[in-house]
Design a protein around this nucleic acid. Structure first.
Lengths: 148, 148
DNA sequence: AAAATTAAGGTCAGAGAAGGTCAAAACATC
DNA sequence: GATGTTTTGACCTTCTCTGACCTTAATTTT
């Protein structure tokens, strides 16, 4: 079996034991599996993405860590399939359509929808294309996974 | 846990016990936590900044002290003064402090705070510095303006 | 009253401790 | 052999901690 898969399964094991949320030390894990530290990043970014229902946070420096949280869908997975619709980049208009839908289906209040639209409009994401649509996709997916 | 975090929590504890305003002795604290005095400055400047809703005053010399006061965001639409605090750029940690403050004083619901944090964290705004802090400031200000 | 001493707190740069990024090389798959 | 996935390493950024040196205020000495 591939190392990445071994590490993935190890992390999965930890997550289920620890009830959905774990904290990793990147360097320790790398030593444990005799690989370079960046392999841990590879596993995390390919296997524990928002698309797959995970939130990942981290801190550098002394006392640094990587925290992985498995999100339990509160709505039967509707939001997760929404996240998977977003893709690598998304225009403001498309995103707006999605948010409007969420509002119509009462997944979001009016104020929540307003906040999200304010966060992802062209004025907020003052970046050139294709950068802007790329960041918008990340922001949107991140928001959605966090409200599941 | 890191020393800085321990000291931060100790100070937080004091602040809530003392009803929002405390006076510290820098050297005493340093002895208490067996660290150099300047570590206290480090904790204060990284954790109790104006962005996070604190005012810090101090006096040197005999009888010197450090006073930390937690600012209570004034009722209603004082979002404007928050916007001014944001400036042209803002770190995620500072922004997080601001949003937490808004939640504490019921300017934002938990879900609204979550959405905003998800929108402006490092994972969402996957850009290099100083670009990241600049875009974060724009996003945050835009959100605040839209919820006024 | 001026000078000296003592008692605070402030600043800043450097070292150390983590995690992040990116592209090239190696390996698989079709 | 072209394409996709995994592995690796060089280099980067961020966060924390420390110590040397500085500034200010109160107290004591002369």
């Amino acid at each position: 079996m591939k190392l990445s898969t071994v590490i993935e399964e190890f992390i999965n094991e930890m997550i289920s034991k620890e009830d959905g949320e774990i904290e990793l030390k990147r360097n320790e894990l790398a030593v444990q599996f005799s690989c370079v530290p960046s392999q841990i990043n590879y596993v995390i970014s390919t296997r524990f993405s928002p698309e797959r229902g995970y939130i990942v946070e981290s801190r550098r420096g002394g006392g640094g860590y990587i925290r992985i949280t498995k999100v339990i869908p509160s709505d039967g997975g509707d939001v997760l399939s929404l996240i998977n619709l977003v893709g690598e980049n998304i225009s403001f208009d498309d995103a707006k359509g999605m948010i409007k839908n969420c509002f119509d289906y009462e997944i979001l209040t009016e104020k929540e929808a307003k906040i999200i639209l304010a966060a992802i409009n062209e004025k907020s994401l003052s970046l050139r294309q294709p950068e802007q649509d790329r960041v918008r996709a990340k922001v949107l997916k991140n928001i959605l996974i966090n409200i599941m």
